[in-house]
Design a protein around this nucleic acid. Structure first.
Ligand SMILES: [Mn+2]
Ligand SMILES: [Mn+2]
Ligand SMILES: [Zn+2]
Ligand SMILES: [Zn+2]
Lengths: 150, 150
DNA sequence: TTATCATTTGACACTCATTATCATTAAGCA
DNA sequence: TGCTTAATGATAATGAGTGTCAAATGATAA
């Protein structure tokens, strides 16, 4: 945790940004909720518990900054709010998502499954891939096993 | 074109919806811009050229209806507006997108490249896939060839 | 054709996530 | 200690999308 914050601090400083207390508090919330997909408002509420004076605009600005630095990815599941997803440190690719149409759960696939597909796209479409977004919509393992009618 | 509208009409009627003039005008705009990714506002402007009395709310309602019927897919490229993408008739899967970070162009891959990946996800994650969204971000073939520095 | 009634429409008010503004404060540095 | 710029918090503004409701439309039955 502390080491991770330290690396983010160095990343900020290398672009002459400061790791202010507000920014640190925000990063801590993101690290503590690594598996969740928090909206800006969610983050705001959680940061307020530890740092009540923080303003909503600061949270938005920090999340924007972290997105620029590729510390987080900004994603959208179509529910009207952007969500912020911590990237795995050192991971070359953004992880994939499984969205359950039944219960709304969002699970993650950290393993990269797109290697072959990306090779094909680069060759056949002459498109140089920098990043990707892959989401599957369906029925998760929990809903699947609990529903005998499927 | 006319046959396609006719099939959509039948699809509407099978759920006891009517193909009103406003709805037909909206569908025509979508068909005429099959390769584009229009926002609701875009659609509204284009429909107004042929049907100036139409209201914005009606366009939103029609797009919502067509999404329910799976005539279009509602997508989001992270620029703050939803976009509506006509589905290929009879296609089992939603097509993929190539978004160019350089020029902003959005190209399509109609071919399904995810067959093997989906089999693996269904087995290993016990997740029953109903739909998917796949977008690659990178440099398109046009920008790629015109830029000797890459 | 005409009466009936549910559906659809258009205008407009409203919500709410996000962004812009701006005066104030904090941090780094001479 | 001053000086300068970056960062913050409060608040206003923006803008996509939704809710409301009276009026118009369209299908159907008499
Ligand atoms: Mn995730
Ligand atoms: Mn498309
Ligand atoms: Zn589920
Ligand atoms: Zn391009």
């Amino acid at each position: 945790m502390e080491q991770r914050i330290d690396r983010i601090k160095k990343q900020l400083q290398s672009q002459s940004y400061k790791l202010t207390p507000q920014r640190e508090a925000t990063v801590r919330v993101l690290l503590e909720h690594e598996d969740d997909h928090l909206s800006a408002e969610d983050v705001y509420m959680l940061v307020k518990e530890k740092y009540p004076e923080i303003g909503l605009a600061t949270v938005y600005r920090t999340l924007e900054l972290l997105t620029e630095l590729k510390v987080v990815d900004k994603i959208n599941f179509g529910d009207g709010v952007s969500r912020y997803d911590l990237r795995q440190e050192g991971a070359a690719h953004f992880h994939h998502h499984l969205v359950c149409l039944e219960c709304g759960a969002v699970d993650e696939i950290q393993e990269d499954l797109l290697g072959d597909v990306e090779d094909e796209v680069e060759k056949r479409w002459n498109f140089q891939i920098k990043d990707h977004r892959l989401t599957f919509h369906g029925i998760c393992h929990r809903c699947h096993s609990e529903d005998p009618s499927s």
